[in-house]
Nucleic acid binder design. Structure first.
Lengths: 236, 236
DNA sequence: GTCGTTATTCGTTTTATGTCGAACTGGTGT
DNA sequence: ACACCAGTTCGACATAAAACGAATAACGAC
């Protein structure tokens, strides 16, 4: 996966801080772990140093999500500007050991996104099924060969936090193999996107298989790199 | 690991909600994912139903860590009472594939815990090194045989989020192998606890190896199950 | 269609957050 | 010993969160 590490780390930090009995101490723990001085943090946030102290000392017992988010982001940004050493150090805890090889990118939306909007964003042609649906996220699968070698437990990870998603298979030749993989699997995505293939070249059996699982199939000629950046940048 | 799943899930949920531009929508997403009606949630929280609506609609733009934590906990508790189906469904995303076999338990403290307190809690006898230190967490390693078969990447996971921790090795015979494993590894824990062995039976070389890496070594006769529960319950 | 239940919107009150700046504490260097 | 800087504590204040309850909107059941 591209740079989900930063996001995952941010989520872990924010989660830990939010669930802590003393969010202030948790905040401090992370700031100290990243070896960032209170003054540096406050300057980055554009607030007076006393603000940091007040939070960490626990004067604000239940800080809002907004500042927690800002502080976490500031800590990570500062580390990134210093070479990202600490982020890298923590990354081993987030690394699942297969993300890089198999999953090119993966994202969960906070609220459902209409399939139609999603399809338009990455220039899809509808092959079968309906676009009158919504998805909670997407997964871009790097190489089909790689996924065929996954254990079933690992395979299920491509569905992320919800099966209500689009699976985007890259560099597809006929589209048959991806559909077979899905037919065989207990979990079904809402939608399959075949990348790097024209609608005319898709194997006719793809439609039949998709119908059985009621999956919407689309194809796009857009470059993988473009898809990744377009989906990442887009605000829904 | 025992039941870190609930905690990890809670952390993931809280993190996502906290970092979201619209925490309300994120909250709703999770409540809906768990198929919990607003009324049920509000009742569990002991608040009026309008409160839930207000959060989810975004009237509260930046809810405090306290309620976010309460809501996440309520969602998980309700699911648990209904059999924990949804928690189980999400657990595959948290499962790393080795925790159960190798790591018996693992925990991170929000603030440093004095080694002396820690040692006393699990009935340790000091073998070498100082207790004038502090740790950020601990890892209980289930079986030494299992860890010897880990890849280096996997091995580093036993250090969790900080190497400033205690590694507790269970069912130790002489204590030599655990120390060898640590000598060979780039990361060093603050402290090693040998479980199931008397101070007199510890191999003399253990002390020498520990000194080189400046690691405190202790041993305890306390049962593994007891250690787990005592450490989990203890408020620091 | 009407009723009852459940969910949302909104006005209102109380309490707490978010922020500053001034005053205070504690090391460091000269 | 003194001045200086970084960090903490604290009073103050505007604004927002946290909560309730009444009024309104939605949705099924009959």
């Amino acid at each position: 996966m591209k740079s989900g590490v930063r996001n995952q780390l941010a989520e872990k930090m924010a989660g830990e801080i939010t669930l802590s009995d003393s969010p202030g101490q948790a905040l401090k723990k992370w700031r100290v772990s990243f070896e960032i001085a209170p003054g540096v943090l406050s300057e980055r946030l554009g607030v007076s140093p006393s603000v940091i102290s007040d939070y960490e000392s626990g004067r604000r017992k239940s800080p809002g999500t907004a500042i927690v988010g800002k502080i976490v982001d500031a800590i990570l940004s500062i580390d990134e500007e210093h070479g990202g050493n600490h982020i890298q150090q923590f990354s081993s805890m987030l690394y699942t050991g297969m993300d890089d090889d198999v999953i090119y990118d993966m994202h969960e939306y906070v609220s459902p996104v209409p399939l139609e909007t999603f399809a338009a964003t990455i220039g899809c042609t509808l092959l079968c099924g309906s676009v009158e649906q919504a998805i909670n996220g997407y997964t871009i699968i790097n190489s089909l060969n790689a996924i065929l070698q996954l254990s079933s437990n690992e395979f299920n990870r491509i569905y992320g936090w919800s099966t209500e998603r689009a699976l985007i298979f890259t560099n597809v030749s006929t589209g048959k193999s991806p559909m077979v993989a899905i037919r065989v699997t207990p979990f079904k995505p809402r939608c399959v996107v075949l990348q790097g293939i024209e609608a005319a070249d898709v194997h006719p059996i793809v439609g039949k298989m998709a119908e059985r699982d009621r999956i919407t199939v689309m194809c796009t000629g857009m470059e993988v790199e473009t898809i990744v950046s377009v989906l990442r940048e887009k605000e829904w």
